[in-house]
Design a protein around this nucleic acid. Structure first.
Lengths: 358, 358
DNA sequence: CGACGCTGAGATACCGGTTTCTCACCAGGT
DNA sequence: ACCTGGTGAGAAACCGGTATCTCAGCGTCG
């Protein structure tokens, strides 16, 4: 508190007989070394730092002439306010974070895109974190990301319900995508997997299929669990579950198992494995849909361009991203995030499904 | 305005009369409202803020016993240092930014992934910005992102050379991906498009093709310009350039024009338009590669799964992302970013190309 | 004509860390 | 014994903004 003759302004006030002596000296050059700060602008314009701040934030209570002078000084020094300082002072980061298990999955890429665009439109930046499917790493990364953002969206989190509930307070505000957790203080946007599977099953049984194989996704995936459960719940089906994965290669590698199990139709965990199995079947000279019908899930951009074009169930991934932004925005403004939403998938019948062979 | 009964700290420490006065006082409540700060930890442990800082940063010059006490206090209050405050004090953000023109393009998705993983491994976070192909918006967004990051990677920037050079100082440290700009103080990682086209042309001419169509990408794309120029430079070819784009649909829509122009081979700007045209040709009952050969560029994951599997040129997009991190990291540490690198693409001959029909 | 209200801008107290400076304390050397 | 050197920890300055407080100057009303 004592001394503090005048604070920091910068040029030559420090020449006095300070113990450590005058190291810096003149400092008279046009460019005071580092980038301009609010203090240098204030000094240049002959006003106080508060006034510069007011001008930069467009406060109307500054005399126009003074404001012009400040703006001119800022321009001349090409000053731009330090983002770090504003973060600290305002207590806001102007950033939201997104945590996804796998950036190579189109599902998450589309959420990312939707979120990025919506947030961008609102002048908010986006921090992206890939958790690499590891549940424990995921929560650590999420927490860390949260500290650099005002809110966070968790896409298809692998962490168990309990862990999520336990962290919910430190994560808030946040929204869940592709997952629903009971008793969590956060809105969730999810897909009605049961309904999606329902549509697929209805379609297949209408075509006369009874023996169906399911190419299972990653065990930790909640979406996979739901789809599998829905399939299992249907007692009219003779279901074979084939461990598979979520990538093209996994589906491709599963083609042999599919023919071996004698199913007349295959349901892929997602479009990538379905596309993979499509190619695998062709390599085995199995006709699709003549001998085997194939169905995907998600309707990625590619599904329309496989051969034959893939019958699948469409998921509004982009829209989920946009909606996630809306909810998060509401939450960050202290409003309600709204209720949980389950999107209803829509069956797209293309050419990879046909009547069961008799 | 005034009144403001309690300002954020909340409880009862402000009761004293003195204007500034002994603020700290008791701080006895279990949860002093807001999250714990370094001051509250210091008070709880009965040490100074400096010591808490030292302990949190693992300075060895703190008595072990004291350190333990501090850690216990931090634990009890579940204190975590404010990221914003550290940014300001340290002058580092622990973040790098990536600007891409289009998040739906696998090329950029893969760079994103490579960069994200490499940066993540180093404990650095990633800010992602989509510029939506607009050159002017791009630089504005880049500058803005740069202010919240310690460095930035620009993927396939659309901005003209001059603009980039002009901004280079404010952008630094940064690295360019999929683009090379002469006389820029930043390393660039790019693809040797000429060589890639060279391989494709050699392959096609060896198969007897002479009349070739090129499905052109976005006009603003530097990669497209290079590929086109390389194609044009080959006088042995009878080239037809068809305006197209960069997405599946664009390629799909161009199928008619391809057959109309009478070419025996099509080179797509990228794999997406090539896949699109593949499907379009099939719909027109044009056999591939019997009647028309199709070549892509990039080798996206999907290329292996089209029908027929797409002949294309492989680009190490992921590796570019990783390398971008290495360079940026070096730059951020004041080292050299190394020289520009041009990656040599590798031709992958699959089944979409065959002998020219006689 | 004095009290009052308003307004524009400076002074100053934050935000929550890090780091330099300073100093008390203790040990070792001559 | 005295000076020196090293060390551990507190005090305070600083990072660069924002927001509150304060006050001078001026116009207006009673």
């Amino acid at each position: 508190m004592r001394a503090s003759p005048e604070d920091r302004d910068g040029d030559d006030e420090r020449e006095a007989a300070a113990p450590t002596a005058g190291r810096v000296t003149g400092r008279r050059g046009p460019r005071p070394a580092g980038p301009a700060t609010i203090s240098s602008v204030a000094a240049a314009a002959g006003v106080s730092r508060a006034t510069v701040s007011r001008v930069m934030n467009g406060s109307p209570s500054v005399h126009p002439e003074l404001a012009a002078r400040v703006r001119a000084a800022a321009e001349a020094l090409d000053y731009e306010p330090s983002a770090a300082a504003r973060r600290l002072a305002l207590g806001r980061t102007g950033t939201v974070a997104l945590v996804v298990p796998d950036l190579s999955n189109p599902l998450f890429q589309n959420v990312l895109r939707g979120l990025s665009q919506a947030a961008g439109k609102a002048g908010c930046q986006l921090l992206v974190v890939e958790s690499d499917e590891d549940p424990e790493e995921e929560v650590v990364l999420a927490l860390e990301a949260r500290r650099n953002a005002d809110g966070i969206v968790l896409a298809s989190p692998r962490a168990p319900d309990a862990r999520l509930r336990e962290l919910s307070e430190r994560l808030a505000p946040f929204v869940l995508v592709y997952r629903e957790v009971a008793g969590l203080g956060a809105p969730s946007l999810s897909i009605d997997n049961r309904a999606g599977i329902g549509e697929i099953v209805a379609h297949l049984t209408a075509l006369g299929h009874r023996r169906v194989a399911y190419l299972a996704g990653p065990p930790a995936s909640a979406g996979n669990a739901e789809r599998l459960a829905a399939l299992r719940a249907d007692r009219g089906l003779e279901l074979t579950v084939l461990p598979c994965g979520s990538m093209f290669d996994h589906g491709h590698a599963a083609a042999g198992a599919v023919v071996a199990c004698g199913a007349s139709a295959v349901v892929g965990f997602n479009d990538m494995v379905a596309s993979g199995v499509l190619t695998g079947l062709r390599e085995l000279d199995v006709r699709v849909p003549g001998e085997v019908s194939v169905v995907g899930f998600d309707d990625i951009a590619f599904a329309r361009y496989t051969s034959p074009p893939l019958t699948t169930v469409a998921i509004p991934a982009n829209e989920l991203g946009r909606q996630a932004w809306e909810r998060l925005w509401a939450l960050m403004n202290g409003e309600s995030g709204g209720y949980n939403v389950r999107y209803q998938p829509r069956l797209l019948v293309r050419d990879s499904t046909g009547p069961a062979p008799s």
